[in-house]
Nucleic acid binder design. Structure first.
Lengths: 190, 190
DNA sequence: GCAACTTCTTAAACTACTTCAAGTTTTTTT
DNA sequence: AAAAAAACTTGAAGTAGTTTAAGAAGTTGC
């Protein structure tokens, strides 16, 4: 059940038998029902989560009480509140399954221990974070330069597999506009 | 002249004499005049930059031909286009000095070599990226939940040292509104 | 110390998007 | 199969921000 993660890691570095075993020992496997939370706002985020199967999201609840999705994750993607994790401060985010999902959780204390025993993995996580941070720079670029309609079409063209899986109101909030406006874009009434 | 970086690294890991020397050998020191570019859109970003003294920014030029600042950096901060760096694809970003600055550049080829010789540094860069990505998650949260005026006051309260150093029109574009609107916020005419 | 350039301000007209409210369709539960 | 809940659509009214244009103030270079 840990194979997808091991495969993902081996795209970046190679592990021997012993290292793979140490890795396995640090991991926890979880199955999640749709809408089940991995993290609740107010909690310290003690884990990083790797999605084996399914689809999850990060979201916040804004001042008006609406959920605002800030990030999606599907297979082979890591999710966490990295600042809460890093500083061990309460999070503002929820992490929630959008579909029934299977995920791997690694707890910070086990992660730190694992990284001492298998320092090669520092490289893997550095590379994952480098890509993620780079993607986040691009995301800010698109938020700053594209109109709502452009962001919608760009997202659909870039990630067609997502559009099928996530409710529109979540996509609207991720793209930073209202669900009503998304309806209008789709109907060509903009 | 590399002391500030070595101090920064030693907040996260410790290096012996030999490792410090290998590090020094990989670094390039540069002085920059105000408005000088470290990266020009269209180029592949082959470096990561650490600011010793001064102030720099990432920006793009949007469809209307306006500069849009997406990131600021001051002392002890790393700047790069991490996706261009990672994938070795042309960048959409400019990296530019806002003040006369002193920076350390490390070229990707030297970085990779250094990380093989001093694998401990993988940990340093992982931790730097983890913090940066976490900060970026928070930034998206604020962009999504705060009004223009709230973003301005929040930025001023959180980073008072910046407001003195950067022109308002750059701050306005970083906060994702027009310079004219920033004038109105400051005048209390909103 | 003047000229040239850069940055900031103001106000009026405009627009991309939100909000509200009601109705329809789809999905889930029993 | 019915009932309940969740998700989507539509249109009218409102607003947070942009755009344009002109002038004022501040900086920099020679």
């Amino acid at each position: 059940m840990y194979i997808p993660l091991i495969n993902h890691i081996e795209k970046f570095i190679s592990l021997d038998e012993n290292e793979t075993q140490l890795l396995r020992d640090a991991l926890q496997f979880k199955t999640l029902k749709k809408k089940e939370n991995l993290l609740h706002a107010g909690q310290i985020c003690h884990h990083q989560y790797f999605i084996i199967k399914g689809c999850c999201r990060n979201f916040i609840i804004n001042d008006k009480g609406n959920e605002q999705t800030t990030q999606f994750g599907i297979e082979n993607w890591w999710l966490s509140d990295f600042l809460s994790y890093h500083n061990e401060r309460p999070s503002d985010f929820y992490i929630q399954a959008i579909e029934n999902s299977e995920i791997i959780a690694i707890e910070k204390i086990d992660m730190e221990d694992l990284l001492v025993k298998v320092p090669k993995l520092e490289r893997y996580f550095r590379l994952v974070l480098q890509k993620a941070f780079g993607a986040s720079q691009m995301r800010i670029k698109y938020l700053y330069t594209q109109s709502a309609e452009e962001r919608y079409h760009f997202f659909n063209d870039s990630f067609p597999e997502f559009t099928q899986r996530i409710p529109q109101y979540m996509l609207a909030s991720y793209l930073d506009f209202s669900p009503e406006f998304l309806s209008k874009i789709r109907a060509g009434k903009v």
